[in-house]
Computed example of a mutant assay.
Amino acid sequence: MPESVPVRCPACRRAHRFTTPSYPCACGAPVAPPLDPGWVPGTVDHRSWREEWITLRCGCCGLRGEWPRPELGCPCGTVLRIPVAGPGSAVPGSAGPAGRSGRAASRPVPVRTARDAVTAAVRYLRRLGHEDIRRADRRPPSGISLAGRGVLARVGPSDRPVTARDVECLWLTAMTESSACLYFSLTGYTGQARSRADTLRVPLFLLDLTGDPRPVNGPADTLDADGA
Rank of each mutant, 00 (worst) to 15 (best):
C27S: 01
C27F: 00
G28Y: 03
A29P: 01
A29M: 06
P30N: 09
P30R: 04
V31T: 06
A32P: 05
A32W: 03
A32S: 15
P33A: 03
P34C: 05
L35K: 03
L35G: 01
D36P: 08
D36A: 13
P37N: 10
P37E: 13
P37S: 08
W39A: 12
V40M: 10
P41H: 01
P41Q: 04
P41V: 05
T43S: 14
T43D: 09
V44A: 10
V44K: 08
D45E: 14
D45P: 04
H46A: 14
R47E: 12
R47S: 09
W49Y: 11
R50Q: 15
E52W: 09
E52Y: 09
W53Q: 09
W53F: 06
I54D: 01
T55R: 00
T55P: 00
T55S: 00
L56W: 00
R57Y: 04
R57D: 03
R57M: 14
R57A: 15
C58V: 01
C58G: 02
C58F: 04
C58I: 01
G59V: 03
G59T: 02
C60G: 11
C60Y: 13
C61H: 01
G62C: 08
G62W: 09
L63F: 13
L63A: 13
R64M: 12
G65V: 00
E66M: 15
E66D: 11
E66H: 14
W67M: 12
W67I: 04
W67Y: 15
P68I: 05
P68W: 01
P68H: 02
E71I: 11
E71G: 09
E71F: 02
E71K: 11
L72D: 04
L72H: 01
G73R: 11
G73Q: 10
C74F: 07
C74M: 11
C74D: 07
P75I: 06
P75M: 06
P75F: 03
C76Y: 10
C76I: 03
G77F: 09
G77W: 13
G77E: 06
G77M: 07
G77C: 11
V79P: 00
V79A: 05
V79C: 05
L80H: 01
L80D: 00
L80K: 02
R81Y: 06
R81K: 13
V84W: 03
V84R: 06
V84S: 02
V84P: 01
V84I: 13
A85K: 07
A85Q: 08
G86S: 13
G86V: 09
G86D: 13
G88L: 08
G88S: 07
G88E: 07
G88F: 09
S89D: 04
A90H: 00
A90D: 03
A90G: 15
V91E: 14
V91N: 11
V91C: 07
P92C: 14
G93E: 02
G93S: 08
S94M: 12
S94F: 13
A95C: 00
A95V: 05
A95K: 00
G96R: 04
G96D: 05
P97N: 07
P97R: 10
P97F: 07
P97M: 09
A98T: 11
A98Y: 11
A98E: 13
G99F: 02
G99H: 03
G99M: 05
G99W: 00
R100D: 12
R100L: 14
R100N: 12
S101M: 12
G102Q: 01
R103M: 11
R103H: 14
A104F: 05
A104I: 04
A105M: 10
S106K: 02
S106R: 12
